[in-house]
Design a protein around this nucleic acid. Sequence first.
DNA 1: ACTAAATCTTAAGCTTTTCTTAACTGGTTT
DNA 2: AAACCAGTTAAGAAAAGCTTAAGATTTAGT
Lengths: 217, 217
Amino acid sequence: MANILIVEDDLDIHNVLEEILKKAGFTYSHVYSGSEAMLLLEKNKYDLILLDLMLPALSGEKIISQVSDTPIIVISAKISPSDKVNALSLGANDYLTKPFNKDELLARINVQLRNSKPLNKDLSYKDLKLLNDNRTLLIGENKINLTKTEYAILKHLIINQKEVVPKNKLLDLISNDTLDGDENSLKVHISNIRKKLKKYSKNNYIESIWGIGFKMS
Amino acid sequence: MANILIVEDDLDIHNVLEEILKKAGFTYSHVYSGSEAMLLLEKNKYDLILLDLMLPALSGEKIISQVSDTPIIVISAKISPSDKVNALSLGANDYLTKPFNKDELLARINVQLRNSKPLNKDLSYKDLKLLNDNRTLLIGENKINLTKTEYAILKHLIINQKEVVPKNKLLDLISNDTLDGDENSLKVHISNIRKKLKKYSKNNYIESIWGIGFKMS
DNA sequence: ACTAAATCTTAAGCTTTTCTTAACTGGTTT
DNA sequence: AAACCAGTTAAGAAAAGCTTAAGATTTAGT
């Protein structure tokens, strides 16, 4: 049976969700904050995430951006179309507003589970390989230590290696809200990654797509 | 760009859906009954179906049961959880109730399209092909780098390849401030695109319609 | 809880790419 | 012919990217 992660800080709803999943026969883990969620997500593999948006410590949106290989159903009190559009664009697969109907939730959970292909994304590109410890990169035989942010950026680029990754997608991986100055920060991270790569390979790997974003090359 | 099938018997909503898809740059077919839908589905391949439930001739539920390889978003006036659960269990991937929000619909459409991978349908005209990376054009085998603006202009022309695109439509794609001097700028962009095209083909591709705008030819 | 180390962000200066402006040419319409 | 529109070119402005270094923040170890 599927393994589900509940991320919800409201105690009542949290309990309701647990109840629903338990009755339906799912196994699940459950946390009350975004940061706890990230800790678990780094360690374990889930088939689905039920995610609140307004969370302490780390917003739901940030989590959506950082998760790429697990389907997410957002369950939020935010009912405005722009909130929905935002979450769905960032990578959520579905969006339910509170209060939700138990049976509808279960049906939507089953949609996600039946659609999720057993795809274990390979985190390698050419002679680069990301270890799943969130900080190590191999170039051929050489180990390179990355920071958490550098790892997240490179992971995102490698998973979408066929496509151009827009800057704002990458920005979601890093900053905490301030959408202005962050672009600069992203540039620095990219620069630092390139510097580390340059030590071991003449290859450039990360190509800038002017005005749009970046892409593995 | 994705190819979508609209199945909706209510004339008003049908038109609204067409409008939304057209503006978003999708290609689509559209029918007013379940039986028509099945005819098209047997002949053609679609990336997504927007489906009403209460249809003449053949119910939406029937269609859901018969379709297995194309994602379906139900758009229905039926708001009860049991109807939703039913449609989702039968095989629909999402369920929106009328009246729906245009942006939310688009976001949910994009969720379905991004999850059903090979969505790399590139725009093409004759031997021109725009890759969906926002900057690359293929003429036959030859790669040409376009700028963001050049790409936007050419994309617009190719999407509306049957029609004359007025200059002011194209102007909207570039800067939004000075509505005067921009016409000059557009001319330069067109000129630059033509120059790049000329390197690889004798064809002119972009035809000027005197006093009105441009058109692929 | 304190300190040191690691990491992230901000700022600045410099480079590259893209966009706009302007000037000139030539064709079209009335 | 005059007014208007289209096409090309070149130059400078504007925007985006790169790198470095310093200050701020976070993390980890004691």
